[in-house]
Design a protein around this nucleic acid. Structure first.
Length: 426
RNA sequence: GGAUGGGUGGCCGAGUGGUUGAAGGCACCGGUCUUGAAAACCGGCAGGCGUGCAAGCGUCUCGAGGGUUCGAAUCCCUCCCCAUCCGCCA
């Protein structure tokens, strides 16, 4: 969502941002609507002013017993009434039209975001860790998991169809261990507050983080009108919807371990095998509600918090900055963290950390009161995966695989797995 | 699913047709007092939109929309949301 006043003053910047996102310019259309709307508002308010003045006079006339003057004024006001009603309706219509456009346009990329058509234009920021060398041919995670008898896609298909998995034994426990490890790290060391949020939310919540109205087709919806969250970003960010928060409690940092549900409507044929792309996966999410002056700094910090998970798991990864063509709708800038997958011989996304500026805050109407001034400003919001648990498991299986088909447990996870050092066929 | 009661400013909470955009309290801001702080006292303090260089002016908003009325937070209708009790249930 955008600030109309800002668009009025910076139409060319606004359009440039859209062009960077490979969308046609919209400022002319928006400003025409806006101008129309303001003209109507002015006219409407004028009529309202006259009505209000007349109403007051009616009160005075009546109380002084001047029925004749009162009646004349009443007749005058009756005419104004239809004018006002028509004006209100027109104003509502124009405001809605304006809102429909504004809420369907993506956020403006920051200036330092590489401009490009798609992921080809993403830029490498840094690489950390060395891909492991194997004396044998590295397998993909699903080969490893299935051979261990702990990862079962066939049974999952029986239960739920494609893009689901059943994990068993130590792999099921590994999922829980990873979540616990990540949450402990983010809460104990990085100051995030652990939240256990609802996984079903309503329209307004999905609108707040901008899944709605544009991406309804990517979401699961219950018959009762609830949406299954596609990420904990949705409930965590909306924790402060319609709130006025204290300036000195910023930044608010939240983390949650939740399942995420995605229709993957546009991903037919992509990553059909294995756990990479599922309708349901779990993720530990990080969300910050930040002061506008500190949101960029917070973005770097959040990214480093997510990276720390991979460092401690000793998984090699790289950080890239997404190009304007690859960035999500609400983001102004996004770092993706990609983990090395020996079985695929490539880096794959395991985390995405975005700073959204005031884009979501405007949709949620989340503000803070400026100290020593009484004006209200929109907060900035950020979100990042810290990390996607399923893909982290994939990375562990592939990076820690052994020639005999077993998988070593990263040291830091062993306390969470009953001291198990190795996952073997059961 | 059945039955009630509710939705008012950052928060609590008065207010059932006529300067009520809304008492009072809390919080917050400024000041007096104090060595400093607290307390006490005095003063300020809703948001959106429009207009204006600005001071300001206008307008809308008491969950949302519609209606009655010269006039609605207050009356009527529809919808949304919340709470409590009963039933069911982890």
């Amino acid at each position: 969502m955008f600030d109309l006043k800002w668009i009025r003053e910076n139409p060319e910047k606004f359009d440039n941002a859209l062009v960077k996102r490979h969308l046609p310019p919209h400022s002319a259309e928006i400003l025409a609507l806006d101008e129309d709307r303001r003209a109507h508002v002015a006219k409407l308010q004028e009529a309202q002013t006259r009505r209000n003045a007349a109403s007051k006079e009616i009160g005075r006339a009546k109380s002084s017993g001047d029925e004749k003057t009162a009646q004349a004024l009443i007749d005058e006001v009756a005419d104004l009434k239809t004018e006002i009603q028509d004006g209100e309706e027109e104003e509502r219509r124009l405001s809605e039209a304006l809102n429909d456009i504004l809420s369907s346009l993506p956020n403006r990329p920051l200036d330092d975001v590489p401009v490009g058509k798609d992921e080809e234009a993403n830029l490498l920021v840094r690489q950390v860790g060395e891909p492991p060398e194997f004396a044998f041919e590295a397998k993909q995670h699903f080969e490893i998991g299935e051979a261990l008898g702990l990862m079962d896609f066939e049974t999952a298909a029986k239960l739920s169809g494609a893009r689901f998995v059943v994990l068993k034994g130590l792999l099921a426990r590994l999922e829980r261990a990873l979540a616990a490890f990540m949450l402990d790290l983010h809460t104990d060391e990085f100051g995030y507050r652990e939240i256990a949020p609802p996984f079903l939310v309503r329209d307004a919540t999905m609108f707040g983080t901008a899944q709605l109205p544009k991406f309804a087709d990517d979401q699961f919806r219950t018959e009762d009108g609830f949406w299954l969250i596609p990420t904990a970003e949705v409930p965590l960010t909306n924790l402060v919807r319609e709130n006025i928060v204290d300036e000195d409690e910023l930044p608010l940092r939240f983390t949650a371990y939740t399942p995420c549900f995605r229709l993957e409507a546009g991903a037919a044929g992509k990553d059909t095998r294995g756990m990479i792309r599922q309708h349901q996966f779990s993720k530990v999410e990080l969300v910050s509600i930040a002061h506008p002056d500190q949101s960029l700094e917070e973005h770097e910090r959040m990214t480093s918090c997510a990276e720390e998970v991979l460092k401690r798991l000793k998984l090699p990864y790289q950080v890239i900055v997404l190009s304007t063509g690859d960035m999500g709708f609400a983001a102004r800038k996004t770092y993706d963290i990609e983990v090395w997958l020996p079985g695929q011989n490539m880096y794959r996304e395991i985390s995405s950390c975005s700073v959204c500026g005031d884009f979501q805050a405007r949709r949620m109407n989340t503000r803070f009161r400026v100290k020593d001034a009484k004006d209200l400003r929109f907060v900035h919001t950020l979100n990042g995966s810290g990390l996607a648990v399923g893909r982290t498991m994939v990375a562990i299986l592939e990076n820690y695989q052994q020639e005999d088909g077993s998988v070593l447990v990263p040291e830091i996870l062993r306390p969470y797995l009953g001291s198990a050092e190795r996952i073997t066929a059961s």
